[in-house]
Design a protein around this nucleic acid. Structure first.
Lengths: 140, 140
DNA sequence: CTGTATGCAAACTTTTTGCAAGCTA
DNA sequence: TAGCTTGCAAAAAGTTTGCATACAG
């Protein structure tokens, strides 16, 4: 996402491009799995004064624009990630808490069936699958 | 889930069967999609003194025992449901907020592939798929 | 200039923790 | 009786809101 295209998307809605919005979007890209708090920390390294409130408001805005998605990977805070760059499905181990990313291609059979049978269009960038990973399964 | 089998599962771990634990488990069964708050309300109709703290602690316990699962259907509170009775996958429309349940069979291709290729065992009772439902898609 | 965006502070909601008293086994 | 459980209160975490100031266009 370049600054100019972000600016264009904002302007289409009568909204403005601000340093905060650029920095927050960049932070989500760089962090990969970003909670509001981790975004806040990352942004403050570059611009000390940015407020957590602005982070919340901007993440919501970026999600409306379709630039980021959020999902719940564990208890507590939501996790945001870039919508455009390499979408992925999360595998969350409920035993050791590890999070891995897999190619969303694995979901194709499901998404096609749901589209066909229920006219439901799954947002693949939003999928988290919970379960037990190989390492923890051995240890059981 | 009968009271006696709950009692047995608890005793195996040196834990105790209490009225609160029975009521909370029953409430999850009856409610289907139960937030901690809705469980609290349901339980208080039968036993006024039960504290929200106990609801949180008990839901966590019941999840450890494998009797309930939780998932995040939207922003905010987690949603608990019975693990044993008819497992289902949730379809959550991010446009109108509607939640529908589908047969977990739709996930079989995915779960089998992940088990085969990554030794990851998906907990199907825990899956929520976000996207846009047919009605909202028409309206776009 | 106009009106959107931000920072600040405070309120709110949800969840967790510590501890004394109560109750199950 | 022993020690697991509960209720209560307070703290902690996470999120939202109102408003005056700052700033993008």
């Amino acid at each position: 996402m370049s600054a100019t295209s972000l600016a264009a998307m904002l302007r289409e809605r009568g909204l403005r491009l601000t340093p905060q919005r650029q920095l927050i979007l960049e932070a989500v890209h760089e962090l990969g799995h970003a909670t509001p708090e981790s975004v806040h920390n990352a942004v403050r390294e570059r611009a000390a004064g940015v407020n957590i409130t602005t982070v919340y408001r901007t993440l919501e805005l970026l999600e409306e624009l379709g630039l980021v998605n959020h999902t719940h990977l564990s208890h507590g805070s939501p996790t945001y990630s870039s919508a455009k760059e390499h979408q992925h499905v999360h595998l969350v181990c409920r035993s050791c808490g590890s999070i891995s990313e897999i190619d969303p291609g694995v979901m194709v059979p499901v998404t096609e069936q749901l589209l066909r049978e229920r006219a439901f269009r799954v947002d693949v960038g939003h999928v988290s699958l919970f379960g037990v990973c190989g390492d923890c399964k051995e240890a059981e």
